[in-house]
Design a protein around this nucleic acid. Sequence first.
DNA 1: CAAGTACTCAAGTGAGTAGTTGACAAGCCC
DNA 2: GGGCTTGTCAACTACTCACTTGAGTACTTG
Lengths: 221, 221
Amino acid sequence: MSQRKFKDEIYPHFARVAQALASDKRLELLDILTQGPRHVDALAQETGMSVANSSQHLQTLRAARLVETARKGNMIIYRVADPSVMNLWVALRGVAESRLAEVKQLAEEFHSARSNGDVVTRDQAEVLAHQNAVLLDVRPVAEFESGHLCGAINIPLDDLPDRLEELPSERRIIAYCRGLYCLLADEAAALLLANGFDVVRLEGGWPEWQSEGRPVIGGVT
Amino acid sequence: MSQRKFKDEIYPHFARVAQALASDKRLELLDILTQGPRHVDALAQETGMSVANSSQHLQTLRAARLVETARKGNMIIYRVADPSVMNLWVALRGVAESRLAEVKQLAEEFHSARSNGDVVTRDQAEVLAHQNAVLLDVRPVAEFESGHLCGAINIPLDDLPDRLEELPSERRIIAYCRGLYCLLADEAAALLLANGFDVVRLEGGWPEWQSEGRPVIGGVT
DNA sequence: CAAGTACTCAAGTGAGTAGTTGACAAGCCC
DNA sequence: GGGCTTGTCAACTACTCACTTGAGTACTTG
């Protein structure tokens, strides 16, 4: 097979995958799915789209084999198909963050008001976790159960005020949530700092952690 | 800033990057550029497109800030803008390879006829390189000079038959080229095997190596 | 400066894509 | 089965994109 013919056959497949990502709505759906499986109605609500429109975007993602479906009763559950998809989404966001000034600025504005406690890198966090630090997942229970950092405990932000006594006050706490554009860990850190805990926030969140192949429980296989 | 408003503002930027990748022609241009800077005419020739069309695709890539330009005489040189872009391209290809059966099959057909010498992973290659193995880059001189594996020597495939005596016959040789869909290293391995050398091929090539942050000389900064 | 090279731009056509609406299918519960 | 929920499909309009053609710009060389 000639080089030219091979390229003409294989590149359209690569483009098909990129094409599926080339819509803000689909990227938002994909991002939500990196946090755990969802049914169509929930996705439509979270994104503010009509069910029909969500359904069509989800089918585009499925046609590119980025997500998979399973029927459960009369609901259809969508989930991310493969860790490599998570990795691709993180890589895409990474390029936008490092190359597009607008993205950098928007992210800063978003976080400017609130930044409680120091931030640790994922490398540092792995070391600290071996040195008696507590990994605290403040996402909702369902998301924790669909996958979380190895060794983490789960106290959703909403429950945190009532469950402070579950946290050891003498150990350092590393709080994390859905990722760069999620404020759960930030709010948790504020609450914990106000109550005298030694708390830091993890840089990024669950998708970044998993896409780098760090130790996890559950998650996409 | 509300979560909804933030998402409505930031996701279109992510989509813009994906949009730029959503064309087989642009991906091919990008892939060529991962091997080193090129001027428009060279890119048009390599892809078989008209100059005007190549130019327009290149401008799309530039608008998404995936590539950068520099004028040199009356030529305009395009190059990949950032290592994260290389990483994104490798991630995209990775998803297509692991998720799309057609891609897997095409790649196998392409390589089926020829597979000379064993393949070593990039991890293994790094270890072997510290154990007296020779890293051999068989790409053209210009590509070697624009960036290569740390410690590699360059003998382009075309020159290899005349320059065999430059290679130590008692050391293991690790041959590499442009990547998964390039046959240079394969042909080099065939030639070296026929001449009694102990040769293996590197899995992937230059872009994969650089995007993983392994030691390099030159390359995109 | 004139001629030539390398690239970009503008306009036009045909193809493809997004979101809406209303009809339809598949499974649940009484 | 009848009525409900959940999701998909088909058809339509408005919009966007790809490639070509021909003109235009930027720089170099004689």
